[in-house]
Design a protein around this nucleic acid. Structure first.
Lengths: 163, 163
DNA sequence: ACGGATTATATAACGGATTATGTAAACGGA
DNA sequence: TCCGTTTACATAATCCGTTATATAATCCGT
């Protein structure tokens, strides 16, 4: 079995193709994160990064900034609150709103991420995509082929013992 | 709220970004399909196309050709069998295997797709991606911006009344 | 001041991906 | 021939996205 049908169908299945690669990349990113012993998944990171960048937000603002639906954000925020990574408080001026912020544990995780993990992931993904050009379908194909050849974890620079 | 955090984080959230756009594209493709009154979703189409191209396959072969996990394929195949679109029979030479093929209804849907839908979707997606070049992140951003500006359904050529 | 319209989030339902595991069938070496 | 190993698919569990709806809070025109 050698035919990859989604690839053969080209633009017709672009959505499916994007999703497929996205799932794959998130999964491989999770592998790099888990190797450091952290329990944050690739899909949760944008929430932490967002609150780190923008400070406390309402749930709706967070959903918008991350680019997901409100119920999706509600669920992820609830999970992260349960993990002690985020804190959610009622807004002082509007009882409908909930203000979400990084907890102390969340700030600790962000600090570790900044120092040890996110640069490695960015470098690995950068290596994965290096020098790619041309139509998006070709790039998706190339990235998939490169991943098959060498997983993301092997592309990440080794954790630096120093500095 | 103007900042799109996933976009701002660049390569670090490439997986999330790919998934986001893939979800969006599939959703907009579903809109075009539904306008024709068909009940096949964008994510199901690769299964039909695969069986149309390659003929009857075992469930495992189908999963591999579409690029999904076996349980994922099992579920989608079961749903499509339930819709009468696919037919699944035990293999004659191996009781563990199940052979999946298009049903008569499935072939009818494929014929309609070929004649009326898939060319329109491919054209719409082609229009969406036209002339894009450069790093994949830039292309993702551009596609998202273009979709926001003009949905896929408005990019598809009108259904041809004649030929 | 009142109340219909709007807003913010929670919840329900559904779709769809994965890994892990279970069960049965098939394989192949001793 | 026997049986440990492998294979194919079903099932379970988990995660995560969406739309629709419910509920409560807030807004603002009358």
């Amino acid at each position: 079995m050698t035919e990859d049908v989604v690839r053969a169908l080209g633009l017709l299945c672009l959505g499916t193709h994007l999703k497929r690669l996205g799932e794959r990349l998130q999964s491989e990113t999770d592998t790099v994160i888990a190797a450091r012993g952290l329990a944050i998944s690739a899909s949760q990171y944008p929430y932490l990064a967002c609150l780190d960048r923008l400070g406390p937000l309402t749930l709706g603002e967070l959903a918008e900034a991350v680019g997901v639906s409100q119920p999706g954000a509600t669920r992820t925020v609830n999970a992260l609150v349960g993990q002690g990574v985020l804190a959610a408080e009622p807004a002082p001026d509007d009882q409908r709103r909930k203000i979400v912020a990084l907890s102390a544990e969340g700030r600790r995780l962000v600090a570790i991420g900044r120092a040890e993990i996110w640069p490695r992931i960015a470098a690995a993904v950068g290596d994965l995509c290096a020098d790619l050009d041309g139509p998006i379908l070709d790039q998706l194909n190339a990235i998939e082929d490169r991943l098959r050849q060498k997983p993301l974890a092997e592309r990440a620079p080794p954790p630096s013992g120093k500095d």
